[in-house]
Simulated scan of single mutants.
Amino acid sequence: MRRRIALNRFFSKNTAMQKNPDSSSKFRTRFERSAARWAARAKRLGIPLVSEVRKEAIYQSTLERRAQVHREADSRFEGCTSLTDGARQLRMRRTDLTEQMEREGWLARINNRWRATQLATDGGWLVERGPAAIRYAQVTPDGVTEIARRMGIAPGA
């Protein structure tokens, strides 16, 4: 009997809440319900809420910052080519190019992969691309001209 009374009280409270369209959560998403609860708490505590216009401005500035970061990351790799394509530009075999770069101290063989050394990345001759587990070296346009100068040949000749 007590359970039935408690359940009746519970359902009568909820049906009363649903009569008010503002408190109806039937069609709201979980996030909207959570946001509404936090807004009610903030209002009770006297904390001013961020306006919708301000929220949109924050969102847009965040998007712009992310786009700028991606543009800067992409500009670092602009014009970079694989070691094979760099060797083609120099009219030589890839193995000869990697041997030359290893002698110059630009490449090092680490875990059976060619990795760019700090000397080459600081000089802007090589870059490393790919996720951390699968990094691979690429030659920059400056790297192709520098290796051609050191070998005494014209690139593309």
Results as ranks from 00 to 15, higher is better:
Phe77Trp: 12
Ala132Val: 07
Arg135Trp: 14
Ser23Trp: 12
Gly123Arg: 01
Ser82Val: 02
Ala108Lys: 12
Ser51Thr: 06
Thr117Lys: 00
Ala108Gly: 11
Thr62Arg: 14
Arg93Tyr: 04
Ile110Thr: 08
Arg3Tyr: 13
Leu45Asn: 03
Ala36Lys: 09
Ile153Thr: 06
Arg135Ala: 05
Arg94Ala: 05
Ile58Tyr: 09
Ala73Glu: 13
Arg4Trp: 09
Ala133His: 05
Asp85Val: 11
Ala36Leu: 15
Asn20Gly: 08
Ile134Arg: 12
Gln138Leu: 13
Leu90Glu: 01
Ala57Met: 01
Val69Ala: 05
Ser75Arg: 06
Gln18Asp: 14
Ala35Ile: 06
Ala157Asn: 10
Gln60His: 10
Gly143Met: 01
Val53Asp: 15
Ala108Asn: 08
Arg149Trp: 15
Ala148Leu: 02
Thr29Arg: 02
Glu56Thr: 04
Lys19Cys: 15
Gln138Gly: 02
Val139Pro: 06
Ala137Trp: 01
Arg9Leu: 11
Thr62Gly: 12
Gly124Gln: 05
Ile58Met: 07
Asp85Lys: 13
Trp38His: 15
Lys19Arg: 15
Ser34His: 13
Leu49Asn: 10
Glu72Pro: 08
Ala57His: 10
Pro155Glu: 06
Gln118Cys: 01
Pro131Asn: 09
Arg91Leu: 04
Pro141Met: 03
Arg33Glu: 14
Tyr59Val: 07
Gly123Ile: 00
Ala42Glu: 15
Met1Tyr: 12
Ser12Ile: 04
Arg33Cys: 14
Ser75Asp: 14
Thr140Ile: 03
Arg150Thr: 12
Arg30Pro: 11
Thr62Lys: 10
Gly152Thr: 00
Lys55Ile: 06
Arg135Leu: 04
Trp106Ile: 00
Glu72Trp: 03
Gly156Ser: 02
Lys43Tyr: 07
Thr98Pro: 01
Met151Ser: 07
Lys19Phe: 12
Arg54Pro: 10
Ala87Met: 00
Ile153Gly: 11
Leu45Lys: 02
Gln89Pro: 11
Arg44Tyr: 07
Gly124Leu: 00
Ser51Ile: 01
Gln60Arg: 08
Ala154Trp: 07
Ser25Asn: 15
Ala35His: 05
Glu128Phe: 02
His70Ser: 14
Ala148Asn: 03
Ala137Phe: 07
Arg9Asp: 10
Ala108Tyr: 07
Val69Gln: 10
Ile5Cys: 06
Glu64Ala: 08
Ser51Trp: 08
Ser23Val: 13
Gln60Met: 08
Ala6Pro: 01
Asp85Pro: 11
Arg149Tyr: 15
Thr145Gly: 09
Pro141Arg: 01
Arg37Phe: 14
Gly46His: 05
Arg41Cys: 13
Phe27Gly: 13
Trp106Thr: 04
Glu99His: 11
Glu64Ile: 04
Val139Tyr: 09
Arg109Val: 10
Glu52Leu: 06
Pro141Leu: 00
Tyr59Thr: 10
